[in-house]
Design a protein around this nucleic acid. Structure first.
Lengths: 210, 210
DNA sequence: TTTTGGTTTAACCAATTGGTCGAAAATAAA
DNA sequence: TTTATTTTCGACCAATTGGTTAAACCAAAA
């Protein structure tokens, strides 16, 4: 109990936030216990309330932070000009999956809380400057230029995101159903998907040579 | 409070299960309250414990039921012989999305509980006779016959399931980000996907004419 | 009518949980 | 050093929650 965690140059506030993020992501809002967060931060429970008045405030603090980091990783990729749609698809899938591999419980956490209290979301999203129009116009432009087959941009985007995120949310299911018989493990499967998904998408929308 | 819900030919046990299913799916295990379930069933809280010894037992009862209904709707489609892979893809997407439209909170509930207590899952899945080998062999057969391009069956299946389920899990996100500017609503979007997804998949794996 | 068995209820209990309070350290200001 | 301010803590509280109990209810059998 004595071992003080290396504080670096950060204060108690940061320590609390780190602990809270861990616990909330593992257990969700309802499952998380203030005491558990306090333990993980090696501090007194009363301190939580000293820095963040109540559980709700503490939760929102990390929820906002987490969602914004998630959105940011999306925006950067999609907005970048100078890449063709195909390039962006390859880049997006590769980087997005890698990002989630580093934070495998993020999607489940976000999706769960999103559905439990949808109202809380809107403001966060609006304020994080997610802008998809540029990506949509680029797709429509390349369709007109005959580089790719006609597709609905919204569906293409959702398809791409679905195929990247869903496996992480459904990981226990996939492990049981899909990979049970083979000796393949989940991480290897997701590595394959970095190659497999862009192939799959591009194959579908690239202009056919008749 | 007096209005007795139509019991049909079922007893209190069924009434409790129905109430429990509603509350658990809405709130998850941690968020659900025995009292709330009792209220929704118009019975005394002690009765819950009389029929199902404790919260855990009650939860497992409905969890198993729900998962099996979900799996069953998958198995039926995939196993059916006499359909080509393309037919099955069209049928699967159409029926699967329709099924979830009728139970829109099922995927979120299942995925969440799956991740919270993965261990509980395995047994349920094993006992529900999910068998994918037939589908895999059929795909490999049609690849050999030159009907479809070479693809990894596991990835194809996960892609298909991802594109169907994910939008429901991420509904609040989609509503905010994707459909906010257009007047399109979510249900219409999913109706479109019944056409859009099979098109997208088949386009990707159908044999190219050079 | 009395008995018997399962069913239902109100009242209660112990444990947990989010949150508070006043005092003690620790730190900064004077 | 003395004083004021901020940070940390142990102890406590009120409310909630899962679970129990003993008694009441009620239909069918005896």
């Amino acid at each position: 109990m004595v071992e003080k965690i290396d504080k670096r140059h950060t204060g108690t506030e940061k320590i609390i936030l780190d602990a809270a993020r861990h616990v909330f992501i593992r257990k969700g809002f309802d499952g998380a216990r203030m005491q558990e967060i306090a333990n993980e931060a090696n501090i007194n429970k009363a301190l939580l309330h000293y820095y963040f008045r109540n559980k709700d405030k503490l939760f929102m603090a990390i929820f906002v932070e987490v969602i914004q980091s998630f959105i940011l990783s999306t925006v950067k990729l999609i907005r970048n000009p100078g890449h063709s749609v195909f390039d962006k698809i390859r880049l997006f899938v590769e980087k997005y999956i890698s990002f989630i591999q580093g934070n495998p419980y993020l999607p489940g956490f976000i999706l769960n809380e999103l559905n439990r209290r949808p109202d809380r979301l809107v403001g966060i999203f609006k304020s994080s400057g997610l802008e998809l129009d540029y990506f949509y116009s680029q797709i429509e432009k390349e369709i007109r230029e005959g580089k790719i087959e006609p597709v609905e941009p919204e569906h293409l985007l959702i398809n791409m995101i679905s195929m990247c995120i869903f496996p992480f949310v459904g990981k226990p299911m996939i492990n049981t159903i899909i990979l049970s018989n083979s000796e393949k493990d989940f991480n290897l499967f997701m590595e394959e998907r970095k190659r497999t998904i862009p192939e799959f998408i591009i194959n579908s929308i690239k202009k056919q040579k008749k």
